[in-house]
């Protein structure tokens, strides 16, 4: 619909951004791949060819095995917990109760806060100290007579990372709720009404009608939350610093590169993270744009 002069202007307007993305995203990824295939170790850049040795070293490193295990536990607890809680909250808020807007805003407010603030506060809520130094949630449990709930939180061997996933659920379940609420609002009321007339109970309506209709929302939530948990970084740093038992790939990359100066291996971690996220996100972008084009 535009003339030649406009076409020129269009290119002029959009090219700085496209150029910036091409350099800062795609050229930098290529650069990282090159670093990951080099012998670069130490402060000065060294691009001597090293093949896939950095990747092999990584897979042989016991610390990286801990990272993979922690990522799997964190992802499982965080994604499942956020979806379950988010869906439940959305269904409860969909019943037309008084004060719905208040509850909705309240469950969403942690999204406005940084992972660092969340982490610093939860670090004190999850204080594992025992005896007379008991504090935080453990103290609250003791005062309420719920001694069986007292635990060592993120300092629990092997499963400590699940305690951090709990803080992440606190932060992200409201977001999942918002996704489901938007989905529920898009379902026509007639559908529920028709099912009610057919004698379906409210639980049956949600189980057999709403849940299947919401599967695109569940898919989005799975992918968005899943890719977030692969990237988890600041929350763990704020709760626990750089402790080995709570290590994840993002922390490993940061520490081995900028403290340890193993640039080659750090880049390899970054590229592996990118690949694991790309296999989730690229099909998701294609699927979203295709559905959008069909509408």
């Amino acid at each position: 619909m535009f003339r030649d002069k406009d076409r020129f202007l269009n290119i002029l307007l959009i090219s700085p951004s496209i150029l910036a993305i091409l350099i800062f995203v795609y050229a930098f990824i290529g650069w990282s791949v090159r670093v990951s295939l080099s012998k670069w170790k130490g402060l000065t850049a060294d691009y001597t060819w090293n093949g896939i040795k950095n990747y092999l070293d990584l897979f042989a490193d016991p610390r990286f095995h801990v990272d993979i295990r922690n990522t799997l536990i964190f992802t499982g607890v965080f994604v499942f917990g956020s979806i379950l809680l988010g869906f439940t909250l959305a269904v409860m808020l969909d019943q037309g109760l008084k004060g719905e807007g208040f509850f909705r805003s309240l469950f969403l407010f942690p999204m406005a806060i940084s992972y660092i603030v969340t982490g610093v506060v939860w670090r004190w809520l999850m204080n594992p100290a025992a005896g007379s130094r008991t504090s935080g949630l453990n103290l609250l449990f003791t005062n309420m007579g719920l001694d069986s709930l007292v635990n060592k939180w993120h300092t629990t061997p092997t499963w400590g990372i699940a305690a951090i996933a709990l803080a992440a659920i606190w932060q992200m379940s409201g977001y999942t709720m918002a996704l489901y609420l938007a989905g529920l609002r898009a379902i026509p009321e007639d559908l529920k009404e028709a099912a009610r007339i057919d004698g379906a109970s409210e639980v049956q309506i949600y189980r057999h009608i709403m849940l299947p209709l919401l599967s695109p929302v569940t898919l989005s939530a799975l992918i968005i939350l899943g890719h977030m948990s692969l990237k988890v970084f600041d929350l763990i740093v704020a709760v626990a610093g750089k402790q080995l038992p709570l290590d994840v790939p993002a922390i490993y990359m940061w520490q081995i590169t900028f403290d340890g100066l193993f640039y080659g291996r750090g880049a390899a971690v970054g590229i592996l993270l990118l690949i694991s996220i790309a296999v989730l996100i690229i099909p998701y972008i294609r699927y979203t744009l295709k559905t959008e084009a069909e509408q």
Partner: peptide, 19 residues
């Protein structure tokens, strides 16, 4: 062009941090 731009918002920044 659009999906190429879009992908940039999901990448783990660890993959571009060194460059």
């Amino acid at each position: 062009v659009f999906p190429i731009i879009l992908f940039g918002m999901f990448i783990p920044y660890q993959s571009i941090l060194i460059p």
